[in-house]
């Protein structure tokens, strides 16, 4: 199974919903989608990994890259990860200390001041 990525808008947030397996084979697709989304003007990104079946350090690396890309531009990343199994990998890496992790998209969107308006960018990894 590879990775699936869907893009939607929840102004002022852009939501990338990621499913499948985020490993060495799937992580490049997420990196590409984030680059395209941020290049389109997005400064508030919610990564929804509720439908993710698997993540390892390569998937974690892609999430860290997204965080860096947004913060370098004054933006912010929020993560939606209700699965304890997936969340545990973030906790092992201590990344739950620097990335806000939420159980729902609504929780992520309501957790902080709204970012700058996000651009609508179609994503086709």
């Amino acid at each position: 199974m590879s990775v699936t990525i869907r893009c939607s808008e929840q102004p002022p947030w852009t939501v990338l919903s990621v499913g499948g397996e985020l490993d060495v084979a799937g992580a490049p697709d997420l990196r590409q989608a984030v680059v395209k989304t941020v290049a389109g003007g997005c400064r508030g990104l919610i990564l929804d990994i509720s439908e993710l079946d698997f993540i390892d350090s390569f998937g974690i690396g892609a999430v860290v890259a997204a965080l860096k890309r947004l913060r370098q531009r004054g933006g912010e990343l929020a993560l939606v990860c209700p699965s304890p199994r997936i969340r545990r990998v973030f906790e092992i890496c201590d990344l739950d200390r620097i990335i806000a992790i939420h159980d729902t998209i609504a929780g992520a969107a309501g957790s902080r001041p709204a970012p700058a308006a996000a651009a609508s960018v179609p994503v086709t990894p």
């Binding site: 350090s57 974690i60 690396g61 860290v64 860096k68 890496c93």
Partner: peptide, 16 residues
């Protein structure tokens, strides 16, 4: 995790 070194590293966490 808060260190710039860590944020600068997007890989190398596998062994840990």
């Amino acid at each position: 995790p808060e260190s710039p070194v860590r944020l600068g590293r997007e890989s190398g966490m596998g062994i840990s």
